Simulated assay, not measured.
Amino acid sequence: MDCPPFDMFFYGTLMRGQRNHAYCHGALRARNATVRGSLYDLPEGYPALVVLEEDVLAVGTANPIRDASEARFRTRPDGIPALEQPTVSGELYTFDDAGERLRALDRLEGFVPGDPTSPYERVLIPAHAEDGTLTFAWSYVVRHPTGRHLPGGHWPA
């Protein structure tokens, strides 16, 4: 089955130069981006993103092909919100292999669709690319972070 291109926003170990970047092999495009949210440096040695509930457009499901399509056709009645503080910096990747890619990333992040005990949740949020493009991207967020708040929104600090 053909999969539409979809975007992922990464802010930690999946970024260029970090230990899990190999999961990004085969990306169609990579660029710097920013999202509205707060970043925490967890004691385990990786970061956690917290976003505003109003920015969550969808939650990931067990159907990665549908999730990829959802991102392409999703709209917000009020449009994409202005980029306000606080913000988190990261990288925006475009992929075209949702079936394999999202399953592998979900395993890496410990996200089990529908399981409230999963440490991370995959959500669709607005992302602002450095070239001014606004898009909806999937990202992994936590509900209740622990660790040290990174007020500058960059990891590693």
Results as ranks from 00 to 15, higher is better:
Gly37Ala: 05
Val50Cys: 10
Arg16Val: 02
Asn63Thr: 13
Asp2Ser: 12
Val56Asp: 00
Phe136Met: 05
Asp78Glu: 14
Ala127Cys: 10
Ile125Leu: 12
Gly17Met: 04
Gly99Thr: 10
Gly79Ser: 15
Pro116Met: 01
His128Pro: 12
Pro64Val: 11
Gln85His: 10
Pro156Ala: 02
Pro113Cys: 05
Arg16Asn: 07
Tyr140Cys: 06
Asn20Ile: 01
Ala129Arg: 06
Ala33His: 04
Leu28Ser: 06
Glu130Cys: 11
Pro119Leu: 07
Gln85Ile: 10
Pro64Lys: 04
Leu150Lys: 07
Tyr93Ala: 12
Ala62Ile: 05
His154Met: 10
Tyr120Phe: 15
Leu108Pro: 02
Gly90Leu: 04
Tyr93Phe: 15
Asp55Glu: 07
Val112Leu: 05
Ile125Tyr: 11
Tyr120Arg: 07
Arg122Lys: 09
His128Arg: 03
Pro43Asp: 13
Tyr140Ser: 09
Gly132Trp: 05
Arg74Ser: 14
Gly45Phe: 00
Arg16Trp: 09
Leu83Asn: 01
Glu91Phe: 01
Arg72Ile: 08
Phe9Lys: 07
Gly12Tyr: 04
Pro126Ile: 08
Arg122Tyr: 01
Cys3Thr: 14
Leu105Asn: 09
Phe111Met: 10
Leu150Val: 06
Met8Trp: 12
Asp55Pro: 03
Phe6Lys: 01
Gly114Asn: 03
Thr133Asp: 00
Pro5His: 14
Gly90Pro: 07
Thr13Val: 03
Leu92His: 14
Val112Gly: 01
Leu108Glu: 10
Asp97Arg: 09
Phe6Leu: 01
Tyr46Ala: 05
Leu108Asn: 01
Ser118Leu: 02
Pro113Trp: 11
Gly12Thr: 04
Arg103Ala: 13
Leu42Val: 08
Val50Ala: 04
Ile80Gln: 03
Gly153Ser: 07
Val123Thr: 09
Phe136Ile: 02
Ser69Trp: 11
Thr146Met: 06
Thr94Leu: 11
Tyr40Leu: 00
Val123Glu: 12
Ile80His: 13
Tyr40Lys: 05
Trp155Gln: 11
Gly90Asp: 05
His154Arg: 10
Leu102Asp: 01
Tyr140Val: 07
Leu124Thr: 04
Glu54Pro: 04
Phe136Pro: 07
Pro64Leu: 01
Arg122His: 05
Leu42Cys: 07
Ala68Arg: 06
Leu14Val: 02
Glu53Asp: 13
Arg72Cys: 15
Leu28Phe: 00
Gln18His: 14
Leu57Gly: 15
Gly60Leu: 08
Ala104Tyr: 04
Pro119Ser: 08
Val88Glu: 06
Arg29Asp: 03
Pro47Thr: 06
Pro64Asp: 13
Arg72Ala: 12
Gly60Trp: 07
Phe6Glu: 04
Gly60Gln: 11
Phe111Lys: 03
Ala33Gln: 02
Phe6Val: 08
Asp106Ile: 02
Leu105Ile: 13
Ile80Val: 15
Asp2Thr: 12
Leu39Ala: 03
Leu102Asn: 04
Ser69Val: 12
Asp96Asn: 15
Leu49Met: 11
Arg74Gly: 05
Cys24Ile: 03
Leu14Glu: 05
Gly45Ile: 01
Pro113Gln: 04
Glu53Phe: 00
Trp138Thr: 06
Arg66Gln: 13
Val123Asn: 09
Gly60Cys: 10
Ala137Cys: 07
Pro145Asp: 11
Gly110Ser: 03
Leu52Met: 09
Asp106Val: 04
Leu105Trp: 12
